[in-house]
């Protein structure tokens, strides 16, 4: 096993790690533990799959951690892959953000590089908060002045990209702000009766839609 190129940025490349037991962790893990989350391993990540009272939260606004999704930063002109599971945000003509299910970074990266783009795996660097439910937009308005989505700017004074995702919105930001932004979002959701939700109930919600 060798590490070449920019493999040292890749979360995926740690999969065949041999004697060492590895689990990728979100920067929000500790706050989720404090909120009594139940965790499960998915795609090499330790993910919060449920929280107390999450159904009630979802009826207002639920906050879910999607940091385990893969993310690529694309520099240079590029075309989004024809893949329904890929979320593509064209930040400007020469820059894009690509978000996709975990485990597919290398394949997507290869395809995009072939197209001439400069591609960086930011799966480790970016965190994602999903705001879901009828008050998702109202909560977003308490975190950012970004309105017409997708858009880039700031959320709770942290540099962020905000994407419209059907049942809610995604806030994409540097993972080292994860603890802070989780705290701010959960606090801002409280007046609406919202709070954290796990991946299980989020997936059920998405499939019901």
């Amino acid at each position: 096993m060798t590490v070449g190129g920019l493999d040292f940025l890749s979360v995926e490349r740690a999969e065949a790690a041999g004697e060492f037991r590895l689990l990728a962790r979100s920067s929000m893990e500790q706050r989720q533990r404090d909120a009594e989350a139940v965790f499960a391993e998915r795609d090499g990540w330790l993910t919060a799959v449920s929280f107390p009272e999450e159904t009630a939260h979802l009826a207002s606004v639920g906050i879910a951690d999607l940091s385990h999704l893969g993310k690529l930063e694309i520099r240079g002109a590029s075309q989004p892959p024809l893949d329904p599971d890929v979320v593509w945000y064209q930040v400007h003509p020469e820059r894009a953000l690509c978000i996709f299910p975990p485990g597919r970074a290398a394949a997507l990266q290869q395809g995009l590089v072939r197209g001439g783009a400069h591609v960086i795996d930011q799966s480790a660097g970016l965190a994602i908060l999903a705001l879901v439910g009828p008050h998702a937009r109202a909560l977003l308005r308490r975190l950012t002045d970004l309105d017409e989505l997708p858009a880039s700017g700031h959320a709770a004074r942290v540099r962020a990209d905000v994407l419209d995702r059907g049942s809610g919105v995604w806030i994409v930001f540097g993972q080292d702000y994860g603890h802070y932004l989780w705290e701010v979002a959960v606090d801002a959701a409280a007046p609406f009766g919202g709070g954290p939700i796990g991946l299980d109930v989020l997936e059920q919600e998405e499939s019901a839609r």
Binding site: R25, Q30, A156, D176, Y177, G178, H179, A188
Partner: peptide
């Protein structure tokens, strides 16, 4: 308003 004071924490903070 509600104070937003960003703090960056490394993955080893806890």
């Amino acid at each position: 308003g509600r104070a937003h004071e960003p703090a960056r924490r490394t993955a080893l903070h806890h």
